[in-house]
Design a binder for these strands. Sequence first.
DNA 1: AAAATAGTGTCTCTCAGACACTATTTA
DNA 2: TAAATAGTGTCTGAGAGACACTATTTT
Lengths: 237, 237
Amino acid sequence: MNEKEFLAAYNKGNFEAPLLTVDAVLFTYQDGQLKVLLVERSNHPEQGKWALPGGFISESEDKTLEDTVTRKLKEKTGVVPPYVEQLATFGGASRDQRGWSVTICYTALIAHQACESELETISDVAWLPIEKVKKMNLAFDHLKIINRAHERLIQKALYSIIPAYALPKKFTLPELQQVHEVIIGKPLQKKSFRRRIEQADLLINTGKKRTERGRPAALYSLRPGSGKHTFVRNLEQ
Amino acid sequence: MNEKEFLAAYNKGNFEAPLLTVDAVLFTYQDGQLKVLLVERSNHPEQGKWALPGGFISESEDKTLEDTVTRKLKEKTGVVPPYVEQLATFGGASRDQRGWSVTICYTALIAHQACESELETISDVAWLPIEKVKKMNLAFDHLKIINRAHERLIQKALYSIIPAYALPKKFTLPELQQVHEVIIGKPLQKKSFRRRIEQADLLINTGKKRTERGRPAALYSLRPGSGKHTFVRNLEQ
DNA sequence: AAAATAGTGTCTCTCAGACACTATTTA
DNA sequence: TAAATAGTGTCTGAGAGACACTATTTT
């Protein structure tokens, strides 16, 4: 049999295969808290429990795995998050009652303002503070996945400005420091924080300022395109 | 319909699903080179091309994804590598001619001595130097996967002693430094290398020495169980 | 003694931590 | 002017880079 004949005779459906889904841990920063987007399951199994947004790959709509995540997140938030990165894949015989299952998980960040209007119209979707989520009884192994995503986000907050994607396009350095502090769970030295950002040249000073109370703060944005988000050295853990 | 009825009626096979495999990039250090284990494909598609070791999840034999990787690697090398870590999952509509496909990839390290006898008896398996592999025409997107694994291994060599798993249980510091240098692709300062290992307290001096030429070198082993493999600061890139 | 290899002493430099200080706004 | 917040100056200490030095083995 040559390759052409082989492919003509091949049928994927002939083989048993684990249940395969794609899920996302979408973070944002709101009201001084790190929040996660959760969806209340409307179907069996685990009906009524809160779960990560996600679903099945659509062989017709999706060309890549990223297409699946962004399609699913757009369904729930109305927009595609500016930062999406693969976290890990979780699989096993017992994580879903339907049998052997695998979920390819992504971490994503977005400014809550970017999807506020959409969220208000969907009743089974909510931003929940991560501290509260950690005490909840979520569907499947989704709490474990969220914990892994949080651990990795903490690491990123220690060596990169990736957390800036949880804020609107323009933000102040004190705001960004707050996001880092909330993610890491402890205060940071203002001077160290600003020094590394200045030296790494990762942000653009837009020249504008924002005044709320006290001295106005300069508004910055991420340097576009460069793809560089990391500092040469970690902050202490 | 309640959950019990739902599960009784549920049949995974009713849904289209991408082809799902698990593959591994298994590295070792041999003859001053970083090498990768490759397998010559005996079946369509991509028959005759070299590919990563891997295969399908067995719902009966495997309880976890790690079970699948280690089972597949044991088939090829006769042993289970001491270091196995998930790398990333690659998927898409066009990476396999059979249709939408997904592969969950792992990085693993092993001492070549640990699997030497087995390898000689299997003709379609070989350790190939990574520099040579990077110029080969491998099956599917396996070259891209190997490149990603190598990039990540370089990072690990800069901030951890994970590369020690590519050596036998006991090794000398000059040997370990050579492995790091080969992975990173540039020489390291002997003093810096030794100082960080001493300060991080990641190795145990076995008290034994190995003499080949010149002054005998102390033999070290990885501190067992601790799970800690990282330094507080990166080496320069 | 010479060659070969293992291992150390020590100076410099960069960058994070700490914390007091100055600057600019509103009330 | 006081309160509030933004932003800076500067000292200390940890640890990497560089490189010359010493130590221990075989031939």
